[in-house]
Design a protein around this nucleic acid. Structure first.
Lengths: 276, 276
DNA sequence: CGGATGCATTGATGGCTATCAACTGCCGCA
DNA sequence: TGCGGCAGTTGATAGCCATCAATGCATCCG
């Protein structure tokens, strides 16, 4: 069995959870929130652990509180194909189906606010306004998925890479202190390895590497370490992406009613806030 | 303005509409159905006509009764990229957003059961069970879109072509009489031109043509005319697709709670049934 | 009838990128 | 300290496929 670490903390304290204003929880009224609190728990998974297996009944659903989850599909030959990344505040798991078509796997160490699927479905039955919000969020996700299809379908590898860098900068804002001169902004971070990033973009680690090095040579980004880059020239990155900033935001799921995700922070930070 | 042909026929007579058991209408109880009937109308569009424009507020939503609709996105350079095809009984239009991110365009002559978006949203408010069904359908669509991403991302062109042929055979069942020896089954029909099919698969008309000719030379299909083929060897087509039949059905949106679409028939046939 | 137009096919060519291979740097570990 | 493993990078090569071009084949229309 999976090693699920149960936490005594409830997720949806409304005042304390860092994603409560972004996740589906934002639609919970007082009664629904109390009920959600009663059934939900914080779970943590180590990077690489499977959260929900492909083909299984999704016993557990919920929100990502911190860290990232990758959505993969396994082909018959055993190859793993990534079809999406889930960010903090995103909903995970498959409701209203006894068959999850994808595998939800921890891409980093993650903290999840999880709830038994059946309980959540029953809750939705009683609170149509929550189900309504879930529908709206799902429609946005569907748009984003179709936008991603358009990106993959007729864009060069460089355009895809540049687009992903832009998305990651927006969805995983991060600031790091430098040695002496203060704070560096515009940090892009790969939350997952090269193989997974390449997979997500429909290319190979080698080609991905070449494109990143090319962006670095052009002075558009600076490579801090293999997983972190500093964006030096946003305008030229957008040129490489060949897309309008607005279109990229829509692919990234950063538009519409839903506010942007909060900064991605590790479980340890979350615990700090919880106990603060 | 668009040339909308209003029909005195209501769509959702429950007994007469050919897609009522497959479309969102199947969730309508007597009261909701009566209300839907009051606001909905049959519209027809000629092939190539735009139904809902990209970026517009979707004034009208509803179901496809017959024909096919293509979902496209226009890039800044004016290129059109197809991100999906909508079949009879599929829902079209964008609810709960004042911005449609895609363009809904008639790929063939289509008949739509359309309803004013605001009215439909109000109806959903009053009938949570309908909104629930819409959520379930949307979740299935999201899964299918992600399955399509996996297909496009790491499959060869031949695999994509074979997969699409398989999907079209399932979603657009058709029988044609031959000259003398009765009925030919296993007919695959392209409802749209080569350019659009190629676009959907992320390739070019030339490469698509070469792959189709190759399948023909291998004796897997027989080319009846440029838009119709007879499937001669289903097993080998599946080999070319490199996917399990089950996986293809899921990409095609042919699984789960929702029954398969009815045979695609033209508006003229629909009218026959209406007047019968 | 003949030219124009649009669509599909076929051919020739170049380029992008997957593949294979080798190398580097890093980390854990004995 | 040295070794092995892993991830990322770099290089060389082959192959698939996009591109350009030309041909067939229908339809439409003057």
């Amino acid at each position: 069995m999976k090693e699920i670490v149960l936490s005594p903390n409830r997720c949806c304290k409304r005042k304390r959870c860092v994603v409560v204003d972004h996740a589906i929880c934002r639609a919970l009224g007082p009664d629904a929130a109390a009920e959600f609190d009663r059934y939900s728990h914080l779970h943590t998974f180590k990077s690489g652990q499977m959260i929900v297996g492909q083909g299984e009944d999704s016993v557990m659903v919920g929100n990502i509180v911190s860290g990232m989850v990758k959505l993969t599909i396994c082909t018959e030959e055993g190859n793993q194909q990534i079809v999406g990344l889930l960010y903090p505040s995103d909903f995970f798991g498959r409701i209203f189906s006894d068959r999850t078509r994808f595998c939800y796997e921890a891409a980093t160490d993650v903290t999840l606010c999880a709830i038994d699927r059946r309980n959540f479905e029953k809750l939705l039955e009683r609170y149509p306004e929550v189900e309504h919000q879930l529908l709206v969020d799902t429609l946005d996700e569907l748009d984003a998925a179709r936008g991603w299809i358009a990106l993959i379908n007729n864009r060069t590898t460089m355009q895809r890479v540049a687009t992903l860098l832009f998305i990651l900068m927006r969805r995983l804002p991060e600031e790091i202190p430098t040695d002496r001169q203060g704070i560096v902004h515009n940090i892009i971070r790969f939350p997952i390895g090269r193989r997974d990033v390449a997979d997500l973009l429909g290319t190979t680690p080698e080609t991905l590497s070449r494109n990143i090095q090319s962006l670095s040579r052009q002075g558009i980004i600076r490579i801090i370490d293999p997983n972190r880059f500093e964006l030096l020239d946003e305008t030229r990155l957008l040129d490489c992406a060949g897309e309008l900033e607005e279109d990229i935001e829509f692919i990234a799921g950063l538009t519409d009613q839903r506010p942007a995700s909060p900064p991605s922070i590790g479980p340890e930070h979350f615990d700090e806030r919880e106990s603060a």
